[in-house]
Amino acid sequence: MATMSLALDINNKNGQCTIKIKGILDISTVEIFHEEFEKCGSFNRLVIDFSEMRFVDSTGIGTIMQVIYASQERGYTVKFNGLKEKAREVFETVGLFEIMKAMQDRGR
């Protein structure tokens, strides 16, 4: 069985935090994301880079949703970069982009 792992490259400077997801964001790895995300500190803009994400399951999608919901309370914007076709299709199907839009409209 292929190794299931997640690594995050996090760069937080000048009010922008960029999180690059490398590997698998699923039920076996989301705790790593949550722990690292809580250590990020403050920022105004969050960029999530999916270009090296190999797989996402529903628990991974739920984790991204929590980051989007938190944007309203903590007052930051969220931008997605590097989404591949399969992940974009899954996010589109479940309605993640609509939730992101609704949260950001409410935050304005």
Partner: peptide
């Protein structure tokens, strides 16, 4: 169209 239950 239609989003997941529990989203909004």
């Amino acid at each position: 169209p239609g989003i997941m239950l529990g989203g909004l």
